[in-house]
Amino acid sequence: MSNLFCSSIGKKLLMSLSGLFLITFLVIHLTVNSLLLFDGSGDLFNAAAHFMGTNPLIRIMEPLLGLGFFVHILYGSLLTAQNNKARGNDKYSSGNKTTEVMWASKNMWVLGLTILAFLVVHIWQFYVKMKITGDPLLAHTVIDVAGVETQVENAYALVNATFSQLWVVILYVLGSLGLALHLTHGFWSAFQSLGASNDIWRKRLTVVGVVFAWVIGIGFSIIAIAQFLFFQS
């Protein structure tokens, strides 16, 4: 095991495992956010946000999630740099006319950078305000959690106010679409790097991956657009 992570396949294993971990995070994130579509008062979302903010398991997973992002970005960049070196300095003057290759698969690093740029804005708009600096919009509100009156932060008010700006909505839709493209290749590729693929499963995983990618991408986009169009008071 000693030098596993120095080898090309070992580094790809890290990309695969961190990628799959981030995918589970996306599923949870979209599930919680989807509450925004069903409740104009925001109580449901506030209850979920309160649960996520106080649940010990989620508190443990939070630094792990940060580590997951860190490993994925670090090794993604490292592998890209090595691959550019391996490609060599001389480019083909007749270009590359190989067909049947998914565009996203050749541009994963660029798509990753797009997502990272979005992530910085996203963390600054929500995570920093909710966990560090605070925000007047987050003033406590009382909701009914399983019959008990509970004081929680009004995360919904912050979400609602943020998505009242058109540029934010456009940015989030672009970020989500970048993420969807990244996942169209990333999902099945994670299984391939683990060795969990063959000629039959490759087809299945690709189909599942593409469907999953667009559910995630369009899901987040719809929430942002719906907040802007239908939930502004």
Binding site: K12, Q82, N83, K85, R87, V101, S189, Q192
Partner: peptide, 20 residues
């Protein structure tokens, strides 16, 4: 694999161009 890495061949990103 270790010889392949040592010789400076790149890392597979599963684009599938090779297969085509």
């Amino acid at each position: 694999v270790s010889k392949m890495d040592e010789l400076g061949f790149g890392n597979c990103t599963n684009t599938g161009a090779c297969e085509v």
